[in-house]
Simulated assay, not measured.
Amino acid sequence: MNIAGLAIDRRAISMTLTRRAPDSYDPDTGKAITGVPAVIPIKAVIQPATGNQLRDLPEGVRTEAQWLLWSRSQVQLDDTVTHKGINYRVVYVWPRDEGAFYRAALGRTTK
């Protein structure tokens, strides 16, 4: 097991991740069917992003991203993470080939 994975396991706390299923199409009515959101309990760490970490992000994402999330649970772009009543939108996910964890940049969506 790698060091980052051990740190995540020791510091992670419970929160929820909401992922909306893709929209589909009803051929009988010709209307779109909105995807149903799935609420998934996860354990993760959320920390404020530093200047160096923000520099690693694409330019258009930097202004929205103020937090970093580390988790062993799969995280995807546009997921919503909720912790202590605060919603964060996943605005960027770093591609990972190793490590068995996910790292994402979050933007706060509610006060």
Results as ranks from 00 to 15, higher is better:
63 T>F: 13
4 A>I: 01
80 T>A: 14
65 A>Q: 10
44 A>D: 00
64 E>G: 04
60 G>M: 07
104 A>W: 06
104 A>Q: 05
30 G>H: 12
73 S>F: 09
80 T>H: 14
62 R>W: 06
103 R>Q: 15
65 A>D: 08
96 R>P: 00
107 G>D: 05
75 V>D: 02
5 G>R: 10
38 A>D: 11
7 A>W: 01
47 Q>Y: 01
79 D>Y: 06
6 L>W: 02
100 A>Y: 14
51 G>Y: 02
76 Q>G: 01
73 S>L: 03
111 K>A: 14
80 T>P: 01
6 L>S: 09
31 K>S: 06
68 L>P: 00
56 D>S: 13
53 Q>W: 11
2 N>G: 12
52 N>L: 08
40 I>Q: 11
33 I>D: 09
88 Y>H: 09
9 D>H: 04
107 G>M: 10
72 R>E: 08
54 L>M: 12
6 L>H: 07
71 S>M: 05
37 P>N: 05
61 V>A: 08
100 A>C: 05
64 E>S: 08
10 R>H: 12
111 K>S: 12
44 A>S: 04
72 R>L: 01
63 T>E: 14
5 G>V: 00
85 G>A: 10
6 L>K: 11
85 G>V: 03
97 D>C: 02
34 T>V: 12
111 K>P: 05
76 Q>N: 11
15 M>I: 02
107 G>S: 13
84 K>D: 13
48 P>L: 13
42 I>Q: 10
30 G>S: 08
45 V>D: 07
73 S>C: 03
107 G>E: 14
8 I>N: 02
25 Y>I: 01
110 T>K: 12
26 D>S: 11
